[in-house]
Design a protein around this nucleic acid. Structure first.
Length: 200
DNA sequence: CCACGGATGCGCT
DNA sequence: GCGCATCCGTGGA
C-alpha cells in the first residue's frame, strides 16, 4: 500500500532480502521543520555471520549497540567526520544491518541543496554520508525506532517492489575486508547511484 | 595517553 | 583518477 510506513516485520527478514526490497521504497525525514524524502536506489547488506566488514562482527561495543538491538532501529555511525545511516535487521542480539548508500531526491530539494551547499544533483544524496547530510541525520538518531513514522521512516511507493531484472548486485564499495561478498544492491542505470559507471 | 585506520568526500588534474 | 583533509572509536602501551 503506497505511502504506508514500513513496519517491523519487514525488517525482521534476512538482511539480504531487506537490502534488496528496500530498493524503490521512500526514505523520509522530518528533522527540524522540513519534510525531506527520496527513493532508495542503492543499499548494502552487512551480515552477522562471516562478514568481517560488519561492525558487529567483533562483538558488542559502546558505539555499535544499536546493531544488536531490535529490527527497524537506526544504526548511525561516524566516519571521516561524517555519518552513515543503517537500518537494523533480524532478531535482537543478531548484528545485521542495511547501509543506505544513495537516494533519488523527491521532496524538500531546496532544503537538501541548502544543507549540502550545492545544486548538482549527483552531489545531493548520492553516497552514504551525503544522504545523511541531506536528511539531517547524525548520531542523535542512533537507535531511533524507524517503524513509528516519527523523525525518520520508510514508506511503500508505487514503484516497489522493483523487478528483479532492474536490480544489479555487486561487491560493496569502499570495503577492504570481505571484499568478495556481493552484497550491494542498486537500481540498474539509475542516475543517483554512486560509484564508477561499471558499478551502476 | 596516543597512534591509527576507516562502510568517505572533495578538489584538483 | 588520485591525493589528502577530517574525526572518532578502538586497541595497544
Amino acid at each position: 500500500m503506497p505511502n504506508a510506513v514500513i513496519e517491523q516485520p519487514f525488517f525482521c527478514q534476512d538482511v539480504r532480502r531487506v537490502a534488496r526490497e528496500l530498493l524503490g521504497k521512500r526514505l523520509v525525514s522530518r528533522l527540524g521543520a522540513k519534510r525531506v524524502a527520496g527513493i532508495v536506489v542503492e543499499t548494502e547488506a552487512y551480515l552477522a555471520e562471516d562478514d568481517s566488514a560488519c561492525h558487529g562482527s567483533r562483538g558488542l561495543k559502546p558505539g555499535n549497540r544499536a546493531m544488536f538491538g531490535a529490527a527497524g532501529r537506526a544504526y548511525v555511525y561516524p566516519i571521516h567526520a561524517k555519518h552513515c545511516f543503517n537500518v537494523v535487521t533480524g532478531p535482537v542480539g543478531v548484528p545485521s544491518a542495511v547501509l543506505i548508500r544513495a537516494l533519488q531526491p523527491t521532496q524538500g530539494i531546496a532544503v537538501i541543496q541548502k544543507r549540502r551547499g550545492t545544486c548538482r544533483r549527483q552531489l545531493l544524496s548520492t553516497g552514504p554520508a551525503r544522504l545523511c547530510q541531506a536528511l539531517g541525520i547524525d548520531r542523535q538518531i542512533d537507535g531511533l525506532d524507524l517503524t513509528r513514522g516519527r523523525k525518520v521512516w520508510f514508506e511503500d511507493t508505487e514503484i516497489d517492489p522493483v523487478q528483479a531484472d532492474s536490480i544489479r548486485i555487486t561487491q560493496r564499495i569502499g570495503v577492504t575486508s570481505a571484499r568478495d561478498l556481493k552484497l550491494r544492491y542498486v537500481i540498474a542505470g539509475n542516475p543517483f547511484v554512486s560509484g564508477p559507471r561499471r558499478m551502476r
